[in-house]
Structures are given as structure tokens and as C-alpha cells.
């Protein structure tokens, strides 16, 4: 599986949970902490993110940055590359 990860700008996240619903890997959840706006912010809760960017696409606050293994690395490691539109 491709490895990816997401970083949240937790200070602008409003905890709307749309990213959580959008994640095909169920990698996301709401933190038990709250940010300065008073929202429970979204965070990674599982180590299975594939960097598919679905969460970032639906995020209404543009709060998500997504990273993923480069395709060249995949080829080198012999992993199967998954086409991401």
C-alpha cells in the first residue's frame, strides 16, 4: 500500500467532520483537544493514510496538506502504483 500522511492546520479547523466522512481509509477522527476557536479539530487516528487527498478536497477550510510517496519511490520499492486522479 502507498504511504501518505496529512497535516492539519489545526488552528483553522472547525471540526466539521466532512474530512472524516470523506476518508476511504477511516484514518481520521476528531481530537479530544480543542483549538483556540473552540473546536475539536480533525487529526490522523490511524497509520493507514494513502495520501488520496479526498479529505483535503472536501475540507471547507483549506486546512489540510497531503503528502504521499512519490511514484518513483514506488517503482523502486516494487509497490504497485495506484493512479490518483
Amino acid at each position: 500500500m502507498i504511504r501518505g500522511t496529512v497535516h492539519f492546520k489545526i488552528e483553522i479547523c472547525k471540526g466539521c467532520e466532512l474530512c472524516i466522512v470523506a476518508c476511504p481509509q477511516e484514518s481520521l477522527g476528531l481530537s479530544n483537544k480543542i483549538n483556540l476557536q473552540g473546536y475539536r479539530f480533525a487529526e490522523l487516528i490511524k497509520d493507514n493514510c494513502t495520501g488520496c487527498i479526498n479529505c483535503a478536497l472536501v475540507c471547507p477550510d483549506a486546512a489540510i496538506t497531503v503528502y504521499r510517496e512519490p511514484k518513483s519511490a514506488l517503482r523502486k520499492s516494487g509497490k504497485e502504483a495506484v493512479e490518483v486522479k
Partner: peptide, 17 residues
């Protein structure tokens, strides 16, 4: 559970414009 959100070896694929 400790989540690994390291970007070591990863490339940026999406960010706020």
C-alpha cells in the same frame, strides 16, 4: 497509538492554494 505523520520520503501532493 502513536501515529506516524512524518513526511520523510513523501512528496507534497495537496496544499492550500
Amino acid at each position: 497509538m502513536q501515529i506516524n505523520d512524518s513526511i520523510e520520503g513523501l512528496e507534497l501532493v495537496y496544499q492550500r492554494p
